[in-house]
């Protein structure tokens, strides 16, 4: 079950963190993978090499998802590789945790553009290639903070809430053929929140607040994406799966 042999999947933001773990998990499940990065070709190359070692085909595309023009170009590049995309995973994103008083208009805009508009632009550009797949699926990456608010990071939380509703809206609009679902990770040990998990006090507080009593790892999120792209999830669309160790239960 949950086999992805022969699939061709684009994973944005896959040079590091959750995106990287997803790219490798999909390759282990049998997919060929297009690795995407913004400005880290060395890290992307190491992911590509690891996928090839797993016996799958991989290529690298680059560009900032905050620019729809750039995104359209790298997604086209990704789609033309094998002539189709069976899956798109939008893991590219940025985090800003500033208090509201100190957020400049351009900073608010940069978060919305990367996290929300970038998700939309990626899917939009991928549509012609998804339509050439017999079993197309999209998985977006939200956050526990997309539905459970916390202080600070208001732009990030608004963007992720937007990603969840975008997921539901596109699940209906792109039905019946293209499935669209989301994962909503909790606190995961990645470069993006390095400041959080490297602070001993915050590290302990999150561990204590998480019912499963630990931080999540990128490898905890990746298998959920694998399920959502699999044939076994053929009747799952418009769903958001929390991958947060239960941190939002109370």
């Amino acid at each position: 079950m949950f086999d992805l042999s022969g699939r061709v999947v684009l994973v944005t933001g896959s040079s590091r963190g959750i995106g990287r773990a997803i790219a490798l998990e999909l390759a282990r499940a049998g997919s060929d993978v297009i690795v995407h990065h913004r400005e880290n070709p060395t890290a992307a190359e190491s992911v590509r090499a690891e996928i090839v070692r797993l016996g799958r085909d991989a290529r690298i595309v680059g560009g900032d998802v905050a620019s729809p023009v750039v995104t359209a170009a790298f997604v086209r590049n990704a789609g033309e590789w094998k002539g189709r995309l069976d899956g798109v995973v939008t893991a590219a994103g940025i985090y800003r945790g500033d208090a509201t008083e100190s957020v400049l208009p351009a900073e608010f805009d940069s978060v919305i553009r990367a996290d929300l508009e970038g998700t939309f632009s990626t899917i939009q550009a991928a549509l012609p290639f998804l339509r050439r797949s017999v079993r197309p699926g999209v998985v977006t990456v939200s956050s526990v903070m997309g539905s459970h608010p916390g202080p600070g990071a208001a732009a990030y939380q608004a963007a992720k809430a937007g990603v969840e509703q975008l997921t539901r809206a596109l699940a209906l609009e792109l039905a019946p053929r293209i499935r669209v679902n989301a994962v909503a990770p909790g606190f995961i040990r990645t470069d993006m929140n390095r400041g959080g998990h490297q602070d001993p006090g915050f590290f302990a507080a999150v561990t204590k607040a998480t019912p499963l009593a630990r931080w999540g790892e990128p490898d905890d999120v990746a298998p959920v994406v694998r399920y959502l792209l699999s044939l076994e999830a053929d009747w799952v669309t418009g769903a958001v799966i929390g991958v947060d160790g239960g941190i939002a239960l109370r």
Binding site: M1, F2, A171, L172, A175, G186, P211, L212, G216, E217, D220, V221, P223, V224, R226, Y227, S230, E232, A233, W235, V236, T237, G238, A239, I241, G242, V243, D244, G245, G246, A248, L249
Partner: peptide, 24 residues
């Protein structure tokens, strides 16, 4: 398949969730 997924190691960091399987 959804039950297998949730019961398996694939969902090792998922708890308290209700996975909707309804074709949308």
């Amino acid at each position: 398949a959804a039950v297998v997924f949730l019961a398996s190691d694939l969902a090792r960091f998922v708890t308290g969730e209700t996975l909707v399987v309804d074709g949308g």
